[in-house]
């Protein structure tokens, strides 16, 4: 499975990560093609966030390398990775807590407008862009509330909106729907994935709800104990016996919805 060619948009080659005795990533080899939408599944502690952290430069792999468009980005720091067009959202929303939702979004919009080569914007244009983003994500109603006081679902959405405001080539979403009510989950995903599909952004998203994975992912990576134990289209991966046992496990028994149902 380890394709050692430079044809992938994003690629991990033999990536390992150890925290003391804990192995959070073990020989990860995976290539992601451009425009694909990849779901990352795995129980808590399986190493999904660690993978995202390594791709985005927050953590250095203990060994192995990460390539973006054929270029080795293993040693870059988050800022540099971001500037290459790789953005992420966070499992725990990372907002500017004392600022309103609007002010939060104004930061990435302002940064974007000041990139070399970007179109300079007047203050009014910046505000209009921010307003449009707020509108698109249904955040207009709470735009002027301090972000620390917003409900979790809204914070999640704002966090994602801020990551998307950077117009990334690749977006990594870490549990975009965790801590959000069941109805809200699909609402959020529809909004986010709709926008991303329109811009044909490459997406990797971590998700525990198999229905959501099936609905949005064109490919699924199943993590277990720092390894990728299955990789393929949702139907194959979600029906894989190992995956059903280690990843979906009690989840299926407990909730009764079949991970392998055919769409």
């Amino acid at each position: 499975m380890a394709q050692q060619t430079g044809e992938f948009f994003l690629e991990a080659r033999g990536v390992n990560k150890k925290f003391g005795a804990v192995t959070a990533a073990s020989d990860i080899n995976v290539g992601i093609t451009q425009h694909s939408v990849v779901g990352l599944i795995g129980s808590n502690g399986a190493g999904k966030t660690t993978f995202i952290n390594m791709v985005t430069g927050y953590l250095k792999p203990s060994s192995g390398s990460i390539l973006f468009q054929g270029r080795d980005i293993t040693s870059l720091i988050p800022r540099q990775v971001t500037n290459l067009g790789i953005c992420r959202s966070f499992q725990i929303p990372q907002l500017f807590g004392t600022m309103t939702a609007r002010q939060n979004l104004r930061i990435p919009v302002g940064i974007g407008a000041r990139h070399p080569g970007a179109q300079r914007m007047t203050d009014a244009q910046e505000m209009a862009t921010v307003a449009a983003v707020l509108e698109r994500f249904g955040l207009t109603g709470c735009a002027d509330q301090v972000s620390a006081q917003l409900p979790e679902g809204t914070r999640k959405l704002l966090d994602i909106a801020m990551a998307m405001a950077g117009n990334p080539e690749i977006l990594l979403l870490d549990e975009p729907t965790s801590g959000v009510s069941a109805e809200e989950k699909f609402l959020i995903m529809d909004m986010v994935m709709g926008a991303l599909a329109a811009s044909r952004t490459t997406v990797l998203f971590v998700e525990h709800d198999m229905e959501i994975v099936e609905r949005y992912a064109s490919r699924v990576l199943a993590f277990y104990d720092g390894r990728i134990i299955a990789d393929g289209n949702p139907q194959t991966v979600l029906t894989d016996p190992e995956v059903r046992r280690y990843v979906i496990g009690e989840h299926v028994l407990g909730q009764g919805h079949a991970g392998g149902s055919h769409a």
């Binding site: 800022r79 907002l95 500017f96 801020m162 990551a163």
Partner: peptide, 9 residues
């Protein structure tokens, strides 16, 4: 408010 977020921008 949040250095991490800024670096990630």
């Amino acid at each position: 408010d949040n250095e991490l977020r800024l670096e990630y921008m």
